[in-house]
Amino acid sequence: MAIDTRTPRHTPDTSTAEMTDADLAARLVVDAGTLARRLREDGLDVHHKTSVSDVVTQADNAAERHITDLLARHRPDDGVLGEEGTLVAGSHDRRWAVDPVDGTYNFVNGSDYWCSAVALTGPDDYLLGAVHRPVTGDTFVGGSDIPTRRNGVPVARLAPGDLATGSLATYLHPPFFDDPDLADPFHRVSRGAATIRMLGSGSVDLASVACGVHTVWAQHSCPEWDWLPGRALVEGAGGSCTTVEVNGYDWFVAGRPGAVEQAVSLLRG
């Protein structure tokens, strides 16, 4: 059966002059997520990358192509870095990081815990992120210049928190539990939280942190497309974000002020 990878029809075309970065970011993730969900409904061919849980489908590739095509039309001078191999140099300091389907293992197995995510970085620490969850219909947009919004409504600003009374969203790929350089800090920070949530989509986790659902998110060795979209949302909600090296690995931490510092202390031991 032929796979329909046409542009989703629900999104009207908008000229470059009319579309802000935030509007474009929202369109990218909504279009990509809608396309990926439609392809999942049609049936998927699944290919393994590095492990049984590290998978890719034609939906990942089609959604990334769609995002790249839109960026070529609306922001032709911007660079692009995509999880599925897109690399556009760009002619200046602005670059989009693209994760067309974040949580592909969940996506393949019928879970709703996946999303499409993008981030835009630029001069003077400019950062914008957008995340769309097709199954729930939620779209999050925010960053350094824009307070984080959920479906167009500003989220509450993140008040200081205590990790010991809050939830930690995290993930450690099971084979890495055999590596004490990763397992030990993971165990320390996990034991410091009231509860743990490990569901397998970093950008969904970070959107939940931005909305106050989780207190802290911590994960090691994150590529830009797994970190920047959600980091933008957390910072746009008044949260703290940092990177710390422990035992030769970079850990990426985001969440409520105060609780982030507690998590970093536990990771360092």
Results as ranks from 00 to 15, higher is better:
87 L>R: 15
130 A>T: 05
144 S>I: 04
137 G>T: 14
76 P>N: 13
144 S>E: 08
72 A>K: 14
122 G>V: 06
123 P>V: 05
98 V>Y: 01
108 V>T: 15
99 D>I: 03
133 R>A: 03
77 D>F: 07
121 T>L: 10
101 V>H: 09
101 V>M: 09
148 T>W: 01
145 D>W: 07
103 G>T: 15
145 D>Y: 08
149 R>W: 00
147 P>D: 04
88 V>L: 11
105 Y>R: 13
115 C>K: 14
144 S>Y: 03
142 G>S: 02
77 D>Y: 09
102 D>K: 12
109 N>L: 07
132 H>C: 04
77 D>A: 14
104 T>D: 03
134 P>Q: 05
118 V>G: 04
80 V>A: 09
143 G>S: 06
134 P>V: 01
127 L>Y: 01
149 R>C: 00
128 L>N: 03
81 L>N: 07
98 V>F: 00
130 A>D: 02
110 G>H: 04
148 T>Q: 03
102 D>E: 11
140 F>M: 13
123 P>W: 02
126 Y>I: 12
141 V>E: 01
146 I>F: 07
143 G>W: 00
110 G>F: 00
124 D>H: 14
87 L>M: 14
105 Y>C: 10
93 D>G: 12
146 I>Y: 09
116 S>D: 03
73 R>P: 12
89 A>V: 15
101 V>F: 05
122 G>H: 05
90 G>F: 00
110 G>T: 03
149 R>A: 00
140 F>V: 12
119 A>Q: 06
103 G>I: 11
76 P>F: 05
108 V>M: 11
110 G>D: 03
110 G>N: 05
97 A>W: 01
86 T>I: 06
138 D>K: 12
106 N>E: 10
96 W>P: 10
125 D>C: 05
93 D>C: 10
106 N>Y: 04
116 S>C: 07
81 L>F: 04
74 H>E: 06
139 T>P: 07
77 D>E: 14
131 V>E: 01
137 G>L: 13
90 G>T: 10
135 V>M: 15
89 A>F: 11
76 P>Q: 13
135 V>C: 15
135 V>N: 15
90 G>H: 08
100 P>L: 08
91 S>D: 11
77 D>Q: 15
88 V>D: 06
91 S>M: 08
74 H>W: 06
144 S>R: 12
105 Y>M: 10
87 L>P: 08
112 D>R: 15
75 R>G: 05
100 P>S: 13
119 A>I: 09
99 D>A: 02
145 D>C: 11
133 R>D: 02
127 L>K: 05
149 R>T: 01
127 L>H: 03
145 D>K: 13
118 V>R: 07
99 D>R: 03
106 N>M: 11
101 V>N: 10
106 N>S: 13
142 G>K: 01
